[in-house]
Design a protein around this nucleic acid. Structure first.
Lengths: 188, 188
DNA sequence: GTCTATAAAGCGATAGAC
DNA sequence: GTCTATCGCTTTATAGAC
């Protein structure tokens, strides 16, 4: 029997999947050990602080992913419109066309928000601010850009709810398509 | 000490608050008895089926409320536009300007969805269908009405996520205002 | 780094007195 | 209808062997 030695970094995505699916309280050690194929001893070796530390690590991991793949391209792309297009592509892939929910969105709706309020707020702030800044660089007025960015990020979160409710990915992909169009056309 | 005799109907709104806040798994009997000020004996007297039956009752209660205050006005109001206006008013009040989250939305995102998939799907279906029908009566084409209705209901769900994340009701009220405007103006 | 054994607390649910 | 006591199970977390 080939025993695989795990590293902390390898465990975090699996933890993320459990927290995403069951929330903080629902992410029991039983579910975690099942998903990671690791004993409690290993889990607590990586995360001595228990579930709290696991959730912190998962939130940091999600934040780092979005920073690298979404926020920074939005902020730094020479072509702002291209950065926005890339955002929709990455987001569609990340959420698996609506099959995967947003961990931070789940935490925001639940009582997890009180425990992780900073991480939840900062994630959505960074996203909306980066998108608004890119929209300004495409020629939008700052107030309009901010409102549009909130509409897009909120629209994505809502589409995830509906896609789950109907178990139909088209609700999510259609929404991405609609929002994408709204940002590229009418400069009202 | 004045003991108050409770009725099942009185308990359901309190249960709803607990399920809304903590989800199905997080709604422990301890939290439920604290919220309702009732012992476990009383709770199980009203709901012999346990938490499952409690959640069913809560979902039915939410559905009945929306039927009465939102779906039927949308479907039956002689003036379709007035029914839509009433929807925004009622929804803004019901969600307490974004301070209260949507129980069905929480269930949709969590693993509760698998257990209560019918109720979750039917709630959003009824809402979207009623809104789309009202939009058709204001002169929209059926396909456009359906897409708009999904955009509005999804937008509301997403706004609840953002309002919670930022702990700022204006995100929700501004979104309601924007969506309201979108339905009454441009007939594109 | 991995595992098993174990502790203490919390869980949903039931029984039975009042 | 309400309560307390109790059961059996699961929970998070720790200890210690390997």
């Amino acid at each position: 029997m080939a025993r695989v030695i795990a590293e902390r970094e390898d465990v975090i995505p699996m933890l993320a999947e459990v927290f995403r699916t069951y929330g903080f309280e629902g992410a029991s050690l039983a579910r975690i050990t099942e998903q990671t194929k690791l004993g409690k001893g290993s889990i607590y070796h990586f995360f001595p602080g228990g579930k709290e530390e696991m959730a912190e690590a998962v939130l940091a991991h999600v934040d780092a992913w979005f920073k690298q793949h979404v926020f920074e391209p939005l902020n730094e792309s020479a072509d702002a419109a291209a950065g926005i297009e890339a955002m929709f592509d990455e987001v569609g892939r990340y959420f698996q066309s609506g099959r995967r929910v947003c961990l931070v969105g789940v935490f925001a709706l639940g009582n997890e928000r009180d425990r992780f309020s900073d991480q939840v707020r900062d994630y959505f702030s960074a996203w909306i601010d980066a998108l608004a800044a890119a929209l300004v660089r495409t020629g939008r007025k700052p107030e309009d850009a901010m409102a549009l960015a909130e509409e897009v990020v909120g629209g994505i979160q809502g589409a995830l709810v509906l896609a789950r409710a109907f178990d139909r990915t088209s609700v999510f992909t259609d929404t991405l398509h609609r929002l994408r169009g709204r940002l590229s056309v009418s400069q009202n």
